[in-house]
Structures are given as structure tokens and as C-alpha cells.
Amino acid sequence: MSRRPPVGVLAMAGVAIGVLGLPLVGLLQRTPWSSLGATLGEAATLEALRVSAVVSLAAAAVSVMLGLPLAWVLARLPFRGRALVRAVVLLPMVLPPVVGGIALFFALGRRGLIGRALQNGFGVDTLIGTTAGAVIAAAFVAMPFFVITAEAGLRQLDPRLESAAATLGAGRWTVLRRITLPLLAPSLAAGATLSWARALGEFGATITFAGNHPGRTRTLPLAIAQANEAGQPEAAIAMSVLLIAVSLVVLVGLRHRWLAPRRRWPEPSQEIPSP
């Protein structure tokens, strides 16, 4: 059925695996396995793991809740300047995260565009050292991943299916709930997973915008960077291995369901005979 790809393709694929995989091998080879348990058992590490879990999941949730309507608008609503809006949406993907963090200050900071409104309306004095700030920073860099995946899914969706549902008596919400969302589910799940993974690894925007506060904004990446700066590479490596392990478990666990978007319904194979 499947033909073997040309040797050149195999060779390049091998190089790609090397580029992506060798650093990981190098890290594992230098991992202080004997002291790993002790490092990971430290209260500070577990705290960073907890903060990472809370922040990345909340950021993924924010990305889905706000990103889905945005993806819908981008995919379905023709308007002037749509290309520009899409470019702006994707900008955080190319922006250095540190710049993203400073830009967030200019928007939400005390002297930012809506900082005063935040202070007067919600009593938010500063987002530095708050988990909310860390979630905002992580969502800022993670949401584009969800938006592009969801938009691509929406574009592949046959709009005639939604029209067909309407001609059968389904109102907007019924169409959304019973047709659009179920058909979109694989894309949404892939997008949510990607944005979660991006939020989990987020560093620059978080430390710039939300700062580094143990138990509130010090996620695993921040703790790793701090250990590295402090000349404690063993601790940094140990926590990196933890981060990799958590990510691998989740990504491999979800792979079958979502990340390799196989058809969720079988190909026509067992046709029943005509009566």
C-alpha cells in the first residue's frame, strides 16, 4: 500500500530527528539521576510544578474561551482588514516573549492603556507577582496556537452541513452544539493541546510581566532559569527533565485521540448490500 519514500527524504528526516532529538539526549545523558529524586522532592520544585500546572491549564482555558470566537470571526466573517487582524493575532508567535511582557505592561500595567481602568474598576493595582498576571502572560503567547488551529479546522468544515441542519429545523445554538462543535472537536483539541504546551514552556513574557514570585508566578521554566543563573545546573537539569516528562506523558497520551487527526469515523469498508 504505502511506498517507501526516496533515500534523500529518509536522510533529511533523519537529520531532522537528530536536530530535534540530540539536545534531549544530551540533557538526559548529563542528568544527575542519583540526586534527581532529592531535587524533585524539594518543596520549592513541587511548588513550581503546581504553579506551572495551574498557570498553563488556566492559560489554555482562556485561549479556548476567547480564541474560539476569534477563530470563528476570522474564518467566517469577511471584513476589510481581516488579513491585518490575522497577522496581529499571530504576532505573539514571532515576538520575543520578553518584548511581549513589556508590551503587556504598556497595555495592562499601572501606566498602561487600560491600567487605570483596571485599578478603578477592579481594584487591580499591579499584576506583578500575581498568578493572574502569569496566566495573562502565558495566554498572550499561547492563544495564537489555538486560534490558527481552530481557524484551519473551521475552514475545512463544509458550511453546507450547517445549512443542511438549519433546513432540518436546527436553530443557531443547536447547529453549533450538535454539528459545528462535534465536527470541529479534533481541531479544537489539537489547538488546546498546542496552546497548553506553549503555555507550559512559557518563560520570557511571564518573568517580565508577572515577575518571579515563589508559589504565585514561579513556574517550572522560571525556577529552571533561576537555578541556571545561580550556578546550579544540576537542579536546572533535574527540573527540565521533570518538565519534559510531564509534557511527554500528556502529548503521548493525547496523540491517539487528537494530535494525529485520523478520521474519527471509519472509511467505507463494509458496505451493506442493497435490499
Binding site: 499591579t126 506583578i128 507577582g129 508577572a210 515577575g211 514570585h213 532559569a225 533561576q226 545561580a230
Partner: peptide, 8 residues
């Protein structure tokens, strides 16, 4: 109580 502990 520092609100943030920067590495730089």
C-alpha cells in the same frame, strides 16, 4: 516581601 525576584 519582594513581589518579584529577578534573575538579572
Amino acid at each position: 516581601d519582594a513581589d518579584t525576584a529577578e534573575t538579572s
